[in-house]
Every structure is written in structure tokens, then in C-alpha cells.
């Protein structure tokens, strides 16, 4: 097999991998935003009912949204931003589930004794 076709296959594979990562992270973020609002909205509603302050329900929802938004930025946004500057070519290649940059993921895999290539397969 020629170099071109090997490179072509590798490109398609990494493209498909990053597409799967993007889909997974995108929908995880949506789930986080919805669950933050629902969880703290529910807590606010329950407390509001107990103490007779109905405004705690929307306050809880907003607080939940703020918490999940902050967490999403901390977990996904931070690594994506740092990855581009620190890791050079690996910048956009983040770990699918953790959102860690490729280099950070490689270091973590190395600590656990799993080669990166094997882990990613």
C-alpha cells in the first residue's frame, strides 16, 4: 500500500474519531446544562415549598445552570484552550470522555501503564 493511501486512511480515521468525540462532548454538554437546571430547580422547589418561598424555584434553576455552565467550561473549555497553545499539533485532539488534551491524556495513560495508541483503539 502506498504512502498516500496509508496517510489517507489515517486522516479518515482521525477525522472519524474527532467527529465521534465532538458528538459525544456536544451532547454531554447539553445533558449537563439540562441536569444542572433540573437538579437545582427541584431542590429549590422543594425548599421553596417547605419554607413557603416560591421564588426559590427559579433561583435554583438559575443556580443550577450557572453550576453546570461553570463545570462545562472547567472540564471542556479549559483543556481545549490550553491544548492549542501548549501541545502544538496535538492541540485539538482531546480525550473523548475526560476532555483532556492529547498530551495530558498520554501522560495519564503512561502513569497507568497503557500505551496511548492501544488506549485510543
Amino acid at each position: 500500500m502506498s504512502d498516500v493511501s496509508v496517510r489517507g486512511r489515517r486522516d479518515t480515521s482521525s477525522e472519524a474519531r474527532s467527529r465521534a468525540q465532538g458528538l459525544n462532548i456536544g451532547w454531554t454538554v447539553v445533558s449537563y446544562l439540562l441536569s444542572g437546571m433540573a437538579a437545582y430547580g427541584l431542590i429549590g422547589w422543594l425548599i421553596g415549598r417547605a419554607v413557603g418561598v416560591s421564588v426559590l424555584f427559579p433561583i435554583g434553576m438559575l443556580a443550577g445552570l450557572a453550576i453546570s455552565l461553570g463545570f462545562v467550561i472547567w472540564r471542556y473549555g479549559r483543556n481545549a484552550g490550553a491544548g492549542g497553545e501548549k501541545d502544538g499539533e496535538d492541540g485539538g485532539d482531546n480525550d473523548m470522555e475526560t476532555g483532556m488534551s492529547a498530551a495530558a491524556s498520554r501522560r495519564a495513560s503512561h502513569r497507568r501503564g497503557i500505551p496511548r495508541e492501544e488506549k485510543s483503539r
Binding site: W27, T28, V30, S31, Y32, L34, S35, G36, A38, A39, Y40, I43, G64, I67, S68, F71
Partner: peptide
Amino acid sequence: VLIILIPVELLRFFVFQPFTLGVR
């Protein structure tokens, strides 16, 4: 932070993740 996140994580994992999978 983890204590604050527990209700969010539980709800996400058991309710909203399957919900978004189906509703989409």
C-alpha cells in the same frame, strides 16, 4: 465542588443522557 456536582451528575447519567439520546 464534587458535593455540588453529585445531583447534577446523577440526573445527567440516569435521566438526561438517555433522554437526549431518544428525544433527538
